[in-house]
């Protein structure tokens, strides 16, 4: 068994597709954000594989640099998404407790 660029690109494609699956499968936007780092890891793997097997001697680390930048941007998108639409919405969206009276439950449902 030999490791080739085609094998690496297969794994990278699977990671990217799984990241998009995570984004498509979830109804909640915050849960869908979890697909971004997965897709970024796949894209970075493709870049690193290209740098390992197909690079020129002029800039051999360019693919690794692209992987680092893609991962940093993925972290930034995740942070920004949680900061903008995260759970820090204040007390108005807190769910009522399980034993709360029905009126409080209905209020909580309306707020959500």
């Amino acid at each position: 068994m030999n490791l080739t660029l085609v094998g690496i690109l297969f794994v990278a494609a699977a990671l990217v597709a799984t990241g998009l699956l995570a984004a498509a499968w979830r109804r909640d936007a915050l849960a869908a954000l979890a697909g971004v780092p997965l897709a970024a890891a796949g894209a970075g793997l493709a870049s690193v594989g290209a740098a390992r097997f197909g690079s020129t001697i002029r800039e051999p680390a360019a693919g690794q640099e692209a992987a680092v930048l893609v991962m940093l941007v993925a972290l930034g998108i995740g942070l920004l998404g949680v900061a903008v639409a995260g759970p820090l919405r204040g007390p108005s969206v807190e769910r009522p407790a399980a034993g709360a009276p029905p009126r409080a439950r209905a209020r909580g449902r309306r707020r959500r």
Partner: peptide, 24 residues
């Protein structure tokens, strides 16, 4: 694939993303 720097960055980013996004 001999990309140690990218490996460390990926480890930090994915663990941070897990801490941030897994409970949400």
């Amino acid at each position: 694939l001999a990309a140690g720097f990218a490996a460390v960055v990926a480890l930090v980013v994915l663990l941070a993303s897990g801490l941030l996004l897994a409970p949400l």
